[in-house]
C-alpha cells in the first residue's frame, strides 16, 4: 500500500507531466550555476523548456535583467549553440555581453519595427531547434500569445526569455517563471576602492509548481555567486575616503 504522501508526490509528478514538464533527474550536470535558486523550481532543475518572464520598470532594472539573462545564457550557450535576441527598441550593448562569458558574435540580433513582427519572429525562433535560447524584449503580451509561445517551447526545447521593459501593469501570461531583477550596491574586494562585481536582488515572483523567493546574487566574473543576506551597514561613511579608483 502506498502511503498518503507517496500518493500525493506521484499525483504532483503527474500534474507536472501534463503541464509540459518533462521529468528530469536533479543531477549536477543539469545545473546551470544559479545555486540555491534552482532548488525553487520543480524537481530542483531550472526549466529549460519554458518561458521566463522578466519585468522591469526602470532602465536600471532592465540593465540588471539583461545582465542576469546574459549570465544564464553563458551556460545555455556553452556547447556552441546560437541565441536570438529580438527587440523593437534595443539598447543592449553587444560588447558588454563578453563580460558575462557570452560570445556576442554568436547572438543573432533581430530588431523588428513593430511588436507584431517581433512576436512573429519570437514564435518562429522558438520553433527552431538549432537555437539554445531566444530573448525577446516585448512591451505587451496577451494570454493567448504567451500560450502559443509556450506550445512552441514545449515542442522544440528552446528556452524563451521575455523582457518586459515597461511593465507598468502586470499582464496575465502563462510564463513558467516571473522574475524581477534590480541592482543593489556592489562590494569591492577587500580594501580596494571603486565598484565590485555587479550584484542583484533576484526576486522570483512566480514559479509554476515551485517556491517563489528572494535572493541576492553576484556575477563573479566567471559565474553566479550567491550572497548570504547580512545586515547592511551604512557603507557610505567608510567608503567616503576611498572613492576614486
Amino acid at each position: 500500500m502506498e502511503s498518503e504522501s507517496e500518493l500525493i508526490a506521484k499525483l504532483q509528478q503527474d500534474i507536472l507531466l501534463w503541464q509540459g514538464f518533462k521529468p528530469v533527474s536533479a543531477s549536477k550536470a543539469e545545473r546551470i550555476g544559479l545555486g540555491a535558486i534552482e532548488d525553487a523550481f520543480p524537481g530542483g532543475v531550472f526549466p529549460k523548456r519554458a518561458i521566463h518572464e522578466f519585468i522591469s520598470v526602470f532602465p536600471e532594472d532592465a540593465a540588471a535583467s539583461d545582465g542576469f539573462i546574459a549570465g544564464i545564457l553563458s551556460s545555455l550557450m556553452q556547447d556552441g549553440a546560437a541565441c536570438a535576441w529580438i527587440s523593437t527598441k534595443r539598447r543592449l550593448f553587444p560588447a558588454s555581453l563578453r563580460s558575462f562569458n557570452v560570445e556576442p558574435e554568436r547572438i543573432i540580433f533581430m530588431d523588428a519595427k513593430s511588436e507584431k513582427d517581433a512576436l512573429w519572429i519570437m514564435e518562429e525562433a522558438l520553433r527552431c531547434q538549432g537555437l539554445a535560447a531566444v530573448v525577446a524584449e516585448l512591451d505587451t503580451l496577451s494570454l493567448i500569445e504567451s500560450r502559443r509561445l509556450q506550445l512552441a517551447v514545449e515542442e522544440s526545447g528552446v528556452t524563451g526569455f521575455i523582457l518586459r521593459k515597461s511593465a507598468g501593469k502586470t499582464a496575465t501570461t502563462i510564463a513558467t517563471a516571473r522574475w524581477q531583477i534590480s541592482p543593489i550596491a556592489s562590494v569591492a574586494e577587500q580594501g580596494m576602492p571603486g565598484l565590485g562585481f555587479p550584484r542583484w536582488n533576484v526576486n522570483l515572483l512566480k514559479v509554476r509548481n515551485g517556491i517563489p523567493g528572494n535572493w541576492i546574487l553576484e556575477w563573479a566574473g566567471e559565474g553566479f555567486l550567491e550572497i548570504k543576506r547580512v545586515l547592511q551597514s551604512d557603507g557610505w561613511k567608510e567608503e567616503q575616503n576611498r572613492q576614486i579608483g
Partner: peptide
C-alpha cells in the same frame, strides 16, 4: 517576412 535588414550580428 519582415525583411533582411532586421537581422544583425556584431563583431568587435
Amino acid at each position: 517576412k519582415v525583411g533582411a535588414e532586421v537581422i544583425r550580428r556584431y563583431l568587435p
